[in-house]
Write a protein that binds this DNA or RNA. Structure first.
Lengths: 269, 269
DNA sequence: AAACTTTGTTTTATTGATAAAACATAGAAA
DNA sequence: TTTCTATGTTTTATCAATAAAACAAAGTTT
């Protein structure tokens, strides 16, 4: 019996010995709020966490005390407060990339009339770190901070294609294992071939294959010692897109801006 | 003796009975990283928290497991990962204001050649929720998500001036009590007079009084039922500023754009 | 109106987080 | 080299966080 108990402890120790439930749940509560669920009740939060109502009661008290959330005194429901921005922006502020690239991305947006973005690699995902939406009404609404699987986006493939071989293969093997729901199925062999041709061409042009209804052109950004550090893209809704214009004007424009940013990066980062 | 213990418990219960140390410290760790301290060691974090190294050891393990931070396998130091952006952006995405105001703020920036911003009230602070930096090199670098005391900024005073009387007085009395370090001293009587004149004029023009070296013009944004919901401003470094230009062109331009945004807000929010 | 649910809140027993100490290792100082 | 100090890691005793239960209040259903 004692052996059984020890075994269980040993099993747990490998992975989650040091995992703190309080912190896990605190962060989960913050992430629980969304555009669809701007406010939540204690019972909803408890049910989402799969715990008794006592736990979030205490968590919510703490988060409210810190200023991250508020409680409506009448409805008793909770919602996020602007202070949550501080948590992420300390990171964003520490990045030099978006600041440096801002004028280029804006220029690109204004020249093409399409939304321009910059993204970096984070694990298996592309994270958007800068965004300049098209001035038109019907615009692509992907936000800074958004994560998308690397193989489902033009920027992602672009980055992947220019990664050093060992990192590329490591990521490809991880993608094969994961198979994220809602993301396109990863046919690693096919993808590897595609990446080779992307590397040769120097850009990616998606005509709505993955993000349905969205056309996108992406180019890599290189830092010093020619290592890929980010990618930029422009995106436009399909019905507003024009293949000839894309081929003749847009793709060269994106490539040109990417080169400009890269040469600037070499100087600074 | 028992009574003493009970008394202590009772005292604690009023304020911090439900405060969770784990969550407090977890969030504090995330906020500890900054532009100056992009990486931190376990010992540094423990010392900053004022606790033994065991506590952050566990916290850091949890945060790393969740993908919010990484640990350099060689130096053992920790740093933020892009996932921290998710925490704040769920809030930012739920706001309609910055999206709706974006084209107006950009227009204002391009017309004036100065940085344009939008801010909302959060407690005693102004939070920046949108930002369009001037295209020039020497630009004002205040970031989205930044908090500044309401009485130290043009936007803050602007918002304060147009608040309903009861809310205004509540905030003024709170400001008097707090007296934030590094912020200008609050002379409530003087401030109240100033707010009255601001409300009459409809805008605020700071010539470097508070943020030294920065000139700023702010205007309020009204939502439906004419309640002030935000403020916008433009800012420029003192040496690039021209008083005549400000008075004749810039101030009218900011007021004009503010009216445009307000009339748009009435329709939507 | 009465009975039934649901929700927020408080209390107590148990489980998990923390501090203190001990240990291992690496780099700095002697 | 040897000693010393600082840092990361593991162990154990104590204290705090959680689940379960019980309660009050408000809203629903009957």
């Amino acid at each position: 019996m004692e052996i059984t108990k020890k075994k269980l402890e040993k099993q747990k120790s490998d992975n989650e010995k040091y995992l703190s439930n309080s912190i896990l749940r605190g962060l989960e509560v913050l992430k629980m709020f969304s555009v669809e669920n701007q406010t939540l009740s204690l019972a909803e939060i408890a049910s989402n966490l799969g715990v008794s109502r006592t736990t979030p009661y205490r968590i919510l008290y703490t988060l409210e005390e810190c200023g991250y959330i508020y409680q409506d005194s009448h409805t008793k429901r909770y919602g996020l407060r602007p202070k949550v921005l501080e948590l992420g922006y300390t990171y964003l502020n520490s990045l030099e990339l978006p600041e440096l690239a801002a004028p280029y991305l804006e220029k690109l947006r204004d020249e093409t009339g399409m939304s321009s973005h910059m993204g970096i690699l984070d694990g298996n995902d592309i994270v958007y770190i800068a965004r300049y939406p098209a001035r038109s009404v019907a615009t692509i609404t992907i936000n800074v901070g958004s994560h998308l699987p690397v193989h489902a986006t033009a920027m992602g493939k672009c980055l992947l294609a220019h990664l050093p071989e060992e990192n590329k293969e490591e990521l490809l093997s991880k993608l094969q294992v994961l198979q994220i729901p809602d993301a396109p199925i990863v046919e690693v062999k096919k993808l590897r071939d595609e990446l080779q041709s992307i590397k040769e061409k120097g850009y990616v042009f998606h005509k709505g294959e993955f993000e349905t209804g969205v056309w996108s052109v992406a180019c890599p950004i290189f830092g010093k010692d020619n290592k890929v550090i980010a990618a930029i893209n422009i995106a436009i809704t399909q019905h507003a897109a024009d293949e000839e214009l894309m081929e003749e004007k847009i793709i060269p424009a994106v490539c040109q801006v990417a080169r400009e940013i890269s040469s600037f990066m070499v100087l600074t980062i």
